[in-house]
Computed example of a mutant assay.
Amino acid sequence: MDIKHLITFKTIAQLGSFTKASQVLNYSQSTLTIHIQTIEKELDGRVFDRIGRHIAITALGNELLPLAAAIITNYEEIETLKRPHDSGNQTITLGMQESVALYRLQPLIRRFQQTHPQVTLIQVLGHKSELTEKLLASELDAMFVMQRRDEQAQLPAVELVEEKMGIVGNHSSLHSLTDLAAETTVFIYPKNDCSYRNIFDKYLGGYVTKQTNLIEALSIEAIKNNILLHHGVSVLPYSTVASEIASRQLRFFELDLTEKDKISTQFLYHKKKWLSPLLHEFTFFVEKELRS
């Protein structure tokens, strides 16, 4: 097997699909199949199970993945030494929380790719705990999350922009914070591992103890839909509800957070993983745009 076989394997494992990997790598699916068959022949075992149209990585595949990621990282570092000023034909694999990907980075990614058309940027969406595991296993080049400033001690972090946090409610039913005491108020909990769940508990917990109508939502879109449909209340970053506030669907009451509670969008990386010049360039671009 050679490096392109390992890149194919890593990409399929991350995307969970031969079809998506074919589009990203610009290979035919038959070529991808040959790459995987070559790996499986040399290892004398399967790295993926095919179940109808779906695939699942095997135990052998899970053993290979971090090793393949490390080899690919070393290969990319060597390639950069050969052509240090060329940022074309490279791939960046970034982990992102839904909140960061949808509401902060998408427009920036589109602008970056307009000036870097040869760069493939793979976005892996997930919860922070899942992304952290992938970054520590070298399956990601870096990750972007919203979290408290001192929350991720095991990974170095660069703060990009502070997030304005507030209590969010339906525009037609939450006219002031005194409305929170109404018996009909529906409180929408962020998921337990959400970075600002503690803010919800701290600033709305006193009201929640008196209520029986509670909903735990798994995503920001689910929280917003519940607020609109059930006249619920939650805590969210302003960046995730700006359009609904502008259209007078939602109201936003900014919270005066303590330094310890403040949330920011951050860039996290593995201190032992090499960061390519292209990744540095992308991160600098994102930081500049978010702070402008």
Rank of each mutant, 00 (worst) to 15 (best):
V119C: 02
E259H: 08
R248V: 07
L32Q: 10
L125N: 13
E77H: 14
I245L: 07
I223C: 13
I109S: 11
L65M: 10
H127E: 15
L155F: 08
I36V: 08
R148V: 03
T80G: 14
L275D: 15
F187Q: 01
D2K: 08
E159K: 00
K164Y: 14
R197N: 14
M1T: 02
K20L: 15
Q90L: 03
S276I: 04
L43C: 00
L25H: 07
S87V: 11
H54F: 08
W274C: 07
A157L: 04
A137V: 00
L268D: 10
A142E: 04
L43D: 02
D179Q: 02
A68L: 07
Q147Y: 00
L180H: 01
P84R: 05
I223Y: 07
Q123N: 12
P190I: 04
L180M: 03
I122F: 08
L140N: 03
D256H: 06
G45S: 06
A142G: 01
M146C: 07
E163A: 12
T184P: 03
E63R: 09
G166Y: 09
G126E: 01
D141I: 01
E133Q: 12
T33N: 13
I167H: 06
S138A: 11
H230K: 06
E79F: 03
A142K: 01
L64E: 01
G169M: 04
H231N: 13
E76A: 13
Q118S: 04
S17F: 09
K210S: 11
G126L: 03
L204D: 10
V235H: 06
S264H: 05
E221I: 00
K20C: 11
T31S: 14
K82W: 14
H127S: 12
G95M: 08
V158W: 14
Q249M: 06
A69V: 05
L131R: 03
Q90H: 04
L140M: 05
I122D: 11
D49I: 05
F253E: 07
M146I: 05
A217M: 12
P117F: 10
I263E: 10
L136Y: 00
M165R: 04
V24K: 06
V158E: 15
T91N: 07
L250S: 02
I78C: 09
E63C: 06
Y103T: 02
T185L: 08
F282D: 04
L108Q: 11
A101G: 02
F285R: 02
D261S: 06
R111S: 14
T8W: 08
H116R: 02
G232H: 05
A69I: 04
L60Q: 12
L60F: 04
L174V: 03
N62P: 00
K164C: 13
L228M: 12
V24D: 09
L180V: 01
G52D: 06
I109K: 12
Q152L: 15
N213K: 04
D86E: 10
L94W: 05
I55S: 02
E133M: 10
S243W: 09
L204M: 03
T240C: 10
V145K: 04
K164I: 14
P66F: 05
I72S: 08
R83P: 00
S264G: 10
D2H: 10
V24W: 05
P66V: 02
I51K: 06
V145D: 09
S129N: 13
T132M: 15
R111A: 15
Q123G: 05
